[in-house]
Design a protein around this nucleic acid. Structure first.
Length: 358
DNA sequence: TATCCACCGGAATTTATGGAAG
DNA sequence: CTTCCATAAATTCCGGTGGATA
C-alpha cells in the first residue's frame, strides 16, 4: 500500500458508511416495505431500480442494518448475475442460513426446503435481477409464504416486460423505488468521509473531490474507485498529494481495476481467449479460431484443463468477455474483428503463449 | 438480381461432475 | 463400491443474416 493510503477498505464495495447521505426518502420507503415483518407478516415486495453504481445494494444492506435493533429479519442477498434458477434457490437457502445444498440437489427439493424451513418473515434481495432468467426464480420464490422479495434492476420497464402476465400483475403491488444519479455536491458528501478515513491528511482537497465527483457523472461507485485510484497514481509518481493531473489517469486506472476484477472472476478458457485477442490487438473471428487451435495445446499444458474443441464453445466465452466489457466486436459480417477494450488489462493467470508462426 | 460466404446465435443433445441411495 | 440422478458445461446441429461477388 502506498503512503497516501491509510485504509483501503473504505473504497471497497462491501464497506458500509456510518450514515447513508442523500437517500433518506428512499430509505424510509424501503423501511416501510419491510415493516410488516415485525408483526410476523410477509414484507412487501420491492422493485428497486436505477443506473449502475448509484448505491442500490448499499441502500438495501444499510436499511436492513438499521432495522436490526428492532428485531432480526432474516435476509439473503443473492448476486443473480450468471446464476440459474437452481443457483438462485441455493444461494437463497445459504443466505438465510437454512441449508447448504449441493450443486446437484434437485430444484424441487430446494423449493421444498425453503418453504418448509422458513417459519419467520424473511427477505431475499435479488441483485442484478435483470441479467437472469428471473421469471422462473420469481415464481419459485413467490411460492414461499412470508418471504418478501427485493428485486434490484437497472431498467424497471425492461425487466417487467420480460415477466409473464401473472408476475407483472403481482409486481404492480410491489413498492417502486427509483434511485437517481447523484448531483456533484451529493457525491462530494459521499467521498469526503472516505477521503478522511482512507487517505492520509492533506492528500486531497475539496476542489479535487468536486473534480472527481463531476467526472463520475453521478455514479458513486465510479467516484469512490477513482478517488482510490487517483491516490494510487499520485503515490506512484512520487507525489504526496493528489493533483489535477492525477485525476484523468485515476479514472483510467479505476476502469482498469473493474475490468481486471471482472476478468479474474471468469474461467481459464476466458483468460486464454482474452489474452489472444489482447496480443493480437485486433483479430478477425476466423484468425482467432486458427490461432487458438495453433497454440491451445501448449497454453493449456500444465493447467488442469483441456482446450475447447468446438468453435461454438469459444463463441460462448467470447460473448461473456464482451458482456464484461473486456473485448468489443461489432456486427455480423466478415470484416468485423474482436479487439480488447483496454489492452492494459492483463489476464489473472500467467500464460505463456507461443508467438505466431512467421 | 441471384447466389455465395463467413459467421452468429438458438436449441437440442451429450458429457462431466459429484452427492445420495442401495 | 456401484448405480442413479441432478445440474452445468461442452458440443453438435443448423437456420438466419447481411455484405460480397458474379
Amino acid at each position: 500500500m502506498n503512503r497516501l493510503l491509510t485504509d483501503t477498505a473504505v473504497f471497497d464495495d462491501a464497506w458500509l458508511p456510518q450514515q447513508l447521505v442523500h437517500r433518506d426518502p428512499e430509505q424510509g420507503q424501503l423501511a416501510r416495505a419491510f415493516e410488516p415483518a415485525f408483526s410476523g407478516d410477509r414484507p412487501r415486495d420491492v422493485c428497486l431500480h436505477g443506473p449502475h453504481g448509484v448505491g442500490k445494494s448499499v441502500l438495501v444492506r444499510h436499511t436492513l442494518d438499521r432495522l436490526a435493533p428492532r428485531g432480526e429479519i432474516a435476509s439473503a442477498v443473492v448476486e443473480c448475475m450468471g446464476l440459474t434458477t437452481a443457483g438462485i434457490m441455493r444461494a437463497t437457502l445459504r443466505g438465510l442460513g437454512l441449508a447448504d445444498p449441493a450443486q446437484t440437489t434437485p430444484l424441487e427439493d430446494l423449493c421444498l426446503a425453503l418453504r418448509d424451513g422458513l417459519d419467520e418473515p424473511a427477505i431475499v434481495v435479488l441483485d442484478e435481477a435483470d441479467d437472469v432468467p428471473t421469471t422462473d426464480a420469481l415464481a419459485r420464490l413467490w411460492d414461499v409464504p412470508r418471504l418478501g422479495i427485493v428485486a434490484i434492476c437497472h431498467d424497471r420497464e425492461r425487466w417487467v416486460a420480460q415477466l409473464d402476465a401473472d408476475h407483472r400483475q403481482r409486481i404492480r403491488h410491489a413498492a417502486d423505488i427509483h434511485l437517481q444519479r447523484y448531483h456533484v455536491d451529493e457525491l462530494v458528501d459521499i467521498l469526503r468521509p472516505r477521503a478522511r478515513q482512507g487517505l492520509a491528511a492533506g492528500v486531497v482537497d475539496e476542489d479535487q473531490l468536486a473534480r472527481i465527483a463531476d467526472e463520475a457523472a453521478g455514479v458513486a461507485r465510479m467516484a469512490i474507485t477513482a478517488l482510490h485510484a487517483a491516490a494510487t497514481v499520485a503515490g506512484e509518481r512520487g507525489g504526496d498529494r493528489i493533483r489535477e493531473r492525477d485525476i484523468a489517469p485515476g479514472f483510467e486506472r479505476a476502469r482498469r481495476w473493474v475490468r481486471e476484477s471482472n476478468l479474474a472472476s471468469l474461467s481459464f478458457h476466458h483468460q486464454v481467449l482474452y489474452e489472444l485477442v489482447r496480443q493480437a490487438g485486433e483479430i478477425r473471428p476466423q484468425a482467432l479460431q486458427d490461432r487458438y487451435d495453433a497454440v491451445a495445446d501448449e497454453v493449456y499444458h500444465g493447467f488442469d484443463q483441456t482446450p475447447l474443441s468446438s468453435t461454438r464453445s469459444r463463441r460462448y466465452k467470447l460473448e461473456k468477455l464482451q458482456e464484461y466489457d473486456l473485448i468489443a466486436f461489432e456486427g455480423t459480417n466478415q470484416y468485423d474483428a474482436y479487439e480488447p477494450c483496454d489492452a492494459g488489462v492483463a489476464p489473472a493467470v500467467d500464460l505463456t503463449i507461443p508467438s505466431p508462426a512467421e
